[in-house]
């Protein structure tokens, strides 16, 4: 579903991503770990065609992202670290706005309220202006957009950063439910605990290269931490 083949991105003389190969199948949650500047966000940006690759190819559902970016975005939902919605609109209006952009048509009000309910936002919150929302609430709205879109793949960039433990746990549950429904997930994080708890596969990135790719079930929390720190020291 999400595929990178020899994906490379350079900014001037600096190589941000170096020949990355990834293949994330439906139902998989692939978590990229790495220090700042390791190339995690660059990878996500390349999948979204926010930046053009210097070499290699990115595919979503078999479609080359650079050739037909609009088509690939029909299948993908992106959740950034900071979900910045329109503060002058209510949560429900934001959901209406973005879901209509995602689907090319407006959803009935009942369906929008149902989506709000699915992400645990009650009717009171739905009609409040988003400027009064917490980060976790804004993220839930955005997950509701992803649900409305029925995306086949999720691209998440540090999604739990700054969330309180309860919100992070709720988020992980939502993610797992989506994965069980056949969604392919590529997520980046600094949080080893979150990665171990959520991911089916874990990749460690360093200076633009994927230096380790592991099956999450085959490695313990302590071993993962030791392995990660070893790569960071080398």
């Amino acid at each position: 579903m999400l595929r990178a083949i020899g994906l490379t991105k350079t900014f001037g003389a600096q190589t941000a991503l170096d020949r990355l190969d990834l293949d994330i199948r439906p139902g998989e949650i692939y978590c990229l770990l790495g220090a700042n500047g390791a190339g995690k966000t660059t990878t996500i940006n390349l999948f979204l065609n926010f930046i053009a690759p210097s070499a290699g190819e990115v595919q979503i559902d078999g479609i080359d992202v650079t050739r037909d970016p609009v088509a690939t975005k029909q299948h993908v939902a992106y959740i950034p670290e900071q979900v910045m919605l329109y503060g002058v609109l209510s949560g429900l209006e934001n959901l209406d706005y973005f879901s209509s952009l995602a689907l090319g048509k407006r959803l009935p009000r009942e369906r929008l309220l149902q989506l709000m309910d699915e992400v645990s936002l009650d009717a009171g919150a739905a009609h409040k202006r988003v400027s009064a929302y917490s980060k976790g609430m804004r993220q839930k709205i955005w997950i509701a957009v992803a649900l409305a879109k029925q995306a086949k793949a999720y691209l998440l960039d540090e999604p739990t950063s700054g969330l309180d433990p309860q919100a992070a746990s709720e988020f992980s549950s939502l993610l797992k439910r989506a994965s069980e429904g056949g969604v392919a997930v590529l997520t980046t994080t600094h949080d080893l605990f979150h990665a171990k708890q959520t991911a089916t596969r874990i990749g460690i990135m360093k200076k633009g290269r994927l230096v380790e790719s592991l099956d999450s079930a085959q490695i313990g929390q302590t071993d993962l931490q030791a392995l990660y720190l070893q790569h960071m020291r080398d």
Partner: peptide, 8 residues
């Protein structure tokens, strides 16, 4: 980024 992550 949110807008352009949609098919737009």
């Amino acid at each position: 980024k949110l807008l352009l992550s949609q098919p737009l």
